[in-house]
Amino acid sequence: MSTAAVLLETRELGARRGNVELFSGLSFAVTEGELLTVRGPNGSGKTTLLRMLCGLGEPSAGSILWRGEAVAAFDTALRQGVIYFGHATAVKDELTAIENLEFGLALAGLPADNAVVEEALRQVGLYARRQVPARRLSQGQRRRLGLARLLLAHQPLWLLDEPGAALDRQGLALLAQTVAEHLLRGGAALVSTHQDLGIPAARARELLFQ
């Protein structure tokens, strides 16, 4: 294995919620093609870590480096290189599945070509319901809409917070396949999960929170 480039690195990272310290002294690096799974009980700071890494919050201590350079919250370099897939699905009830995906892709700075969008919806099994307002989609189908966005994302680092929530077995398989392909392309992923997602990865590590 040749030395893969480091995408994201943390140095002595710390976070607190109110007066409670969630974690401290956290140092790790994510390289291209690597899968880092974050595990730990509820409330241990997994989501806080992921949100911090994508720039949605300032660490209480330590620093975050993107491709070797220190970045602050909402840094432009982070916003261009990272995609964050959180608990909230960012799906608009009033818009159809296809409109949701188009606007979502454009917001993530990705080309939203009609044919590509339809193909992604077909892959996640929402093609038949593409013209239905998202209000009438189930929770799992909403997550699949998010998955369609991931299918088309070419940001090098993916931060996925409980990506398997509300997905059925077929959806989970699709998720695992999507992330695996991303890793093969040289992307990296940080996944917080309680489930075993079964993502095939050449290099996988775990980050355990107490």
């Binding site: 959180g86 960012a90 700075g109």
Partner: peptide, 15 residues
């Protein structure tokens, strides 16, 4: 409420 705003803050498009 639905998380679109955080995606806007993280978007490469200028806020």
């Amino acid at each position: 409420a639905d998380g679109t705003l955080e995606q806007m803050l993280l978007s490469p498009l200028p806020l």
